[in-house]
Design a protein around this nucleic acid. Structure first.
Lengths: 141, 141
DNA sequence: TTAATTCCTACCTTTACACTATGATTTAAA
DNA sequence: TTTAAATCATAGTGTAAAGGTAGGAATTAA
């Protein structure tokens, strides 16, 4: 699981969409202002979100994006993996130069990072988009 | 919690020390060969491990490093935080430029990352150095 | 005295991240 | 029909950090 601000921005933007989901298509300009993320960067992120069927786009003036599914069915893990190509924190694979090979006493930590990845994935699997906006409802009413 | 290969190397090296803890001081040259980590880079890592009282150094010929404590008392979290200055994955602090401020609808994801950090820390808190080498004992006997 | 080691600090190289720039396409509304 | 607002697409860029190297000084067992 790659944890960077692209993933964080994606979650923020999706949460923004969820908050305003009754207002029709939300433009990236709006999200850009509200969440303080550059518009052009948001565009890149939303291409990926769209390709992963997390949002639908409405082109042209008064267009924007809407959630493809209900916030209570969207897992955070889906969002993060949509914008990050890789899933692994630290690879230790056959094909990477520096990693496991067949020497003894190598890869002592292999299982550890595997378990960590599972642990993080498991965390994001359990949290839904709805869970985020519930906590902010009073703030944003 | 910063997850990079410095932290991974540190854990690998500490596990190596644990595996060979009955052989007296272990030189970084040995660890470098066994774990396939550059010697000079290991030196940097071990300075930090030493300053954090995780290892003791024995200078001069036949010198090296030994664990300061028993492997079953050393938490992985201690090792990783020793070599990484930062603890947070993604900061969202007052003093950072891009982060929380008092605008409404900001920081929707603030709690999420806080909880993730706790989750990861909790994972590394529960794993001891001994847990790693147990799994490799048959391989390295 | 020598070789093996830790210790220390400065430097270097590459890469990925985060972002910008530019322009094309689509479409609602004036 | 024109204009402005929006998505769509891709290439380029600046920077910081990761992941090392390099070179030498200090220490110590043999």
């Amino acid at each position: 699981m790659k944890l960077n601000s692209k993933g964080r921005y994606a979650v923020m933007a999706m949460a923004d969409l969820a908050l305003f989901k009754d207002k029709g298509p939300i433009s990236l300009t709006d999200i850009s202002i509200r969440q303080n993320i550059s518009l052009a960067y948001l565009e890149q992120i939303f291409i990926k979100l769209k390709h992963n069927n997390l949002v639908k786009s409405v082109r042209g003036a008064k267009g924007g994006y809407v959630l493809e599914h209900s916030p209570d069915t969207i897992k955070i893990s889906k969002i993060i993996s949509a914008v990050d190509e890789e899933i692994k924190t630290l690879n230790c694979k056959k094909d990477s130069k520096k990693g496991c090979n067949n020497k003894s006493s190598k890869c002592i930590t292999h299982n550890l990072w595997d378990q960590l990845d599972q642990h993080i994935n498991n965390f994001f699997e359990k949290v839904k988009l709805q869970d985020l906006i519930k906590k902010n409802q009073t703030l944003n009413k």
